[in-house]
Design a protein around this nucleic acid. Structure first.
Length: 271
DNA sequence: AGTGCGGCCTGTCCGC
DNA sequence: TGCGGACAGGCCGCAC
């Protein structure tokens, strides 16, 4: 389940291998991802050079002079660099073959991911145009969250997982950030003071920064490796620990469902 | 407009 | 040991 830190780790790992590389072929073995892989890729992409590997939210953006490849890893997707002759494994659905004899290989067992192509500005793409700010940007601050919460009554966990509000927070890091901020995940957004939003902002940035830093140390060999940055599970303090002891107070962590998502929290440390 | 939820998928784990 | 079922998750698209 790649969350923003995993996607950013992937971006950093791939960038040196892809930047200024020309694509010579596209091989699609399984086009049935979240949306069908565009058939035009095989026609449009060969001959184009990847100028930059960027990211917006959890979308990776492979930019050329004539358009941008938009890749989402969904729940189970991963990208790695392979020698073009390496036989694909199960669930290796798409290869972008590069001029240097290597390829970028997309593996995605659950096929929740996506590959899309746009000839225009990717930020104007319908999937990206309405996204909220990046959580690590200066535009994401306490006053912003507070203002966006006005007139709403939803649970704060659902609120921060809403990509209209802020991008990149999946279930794992939403749980972690609320724990760090000492806020109960089911608390209504209309019952949180501005100063607590400021604390929440700090917690979100800290949790994501730490996860990216942990991934950074493991951005090792994307060539013929698993290519999967992992989920930094060593740094998770509540996610997956329901029923175990709170690392702060020792009381048992609660586990419930909020907005159809499993939520773990400490009844005493989070109010 | 804001909110909740169904559905897409398969690997993993559990109980029988 | 084999099998069925629950569960996990991102996020679009729909219904209210």
């Amino acid at each position: 389940m790649p969350e923003l830190p995993e996607v950013e780790t992937t971006r950093r790992g791939l960038s040196p291998f892809l930047t200024q590389q020309q694509v010579v072929a596209v091989r699609v073995r399984e086009p049935r991802l979240r949306w069908p892989v565009p058939t035009e890729l095989a026609r449009v992409l060969p001959g184009l050079t990847i100028e930059h590997v960027g990211r917006r939210a959890k979308y990776l953006l492979l930019t050329t002079h004539h358009g941008t490849l938009i890749i989402h890893l969904g729940m189970s997707g991963s990208l790695r660099i392979a020698e073009a002759g390496t036989p694909p494994n199960t669930h290796d659905h798409v290869d972008l073959v590069l001029q240097n004899g290597r390829c970028v290989r997309l593996r995605d067992p659950r096929r929740f991911g996506a590959i899309l192509w746009t000839g225009g500005d990717p930020l104007d793409h319908p999937l990206l145009v309405n996204l909220g700010p990046e959580p690590l940007s200066e535009q994401f601050h306490g006053e912003y969250l507070y203002q966006r919460s006005r007139g709403r009554r939803t649970a704060v966990k659902s609120f921060i997982m809403n990509s209209d509000v802020v991008v990149g927070l999946g279930n794992i890091y939403a749980n972690e950030a609320l724990y760090e901020a000492g806020i109960h995940p089911a608390r209504g957004v209309h019952r949180i003071a501005k100063t607590r939003y400021e604390r929440l902002i700090r917690a979100i940035k800290q949790v994501l920064d730490d996860a990216i830093a942990a991934g950074g140390t493991s951005v090792r060999d994307f060539v013929n490796s698993q290519g999967e940055p992992g989920y930094f599970s060593h740094s998770l303090r509540v996610y997956g620990r329901g029923g175990k002891a709170c690392l702060r107070c020792g009381r048992m962590l609660q586990q419930t469902r909020i907005g159809q998502r499993s939520s773990v929290y400490c009844l005493y440390c989070q109010r």
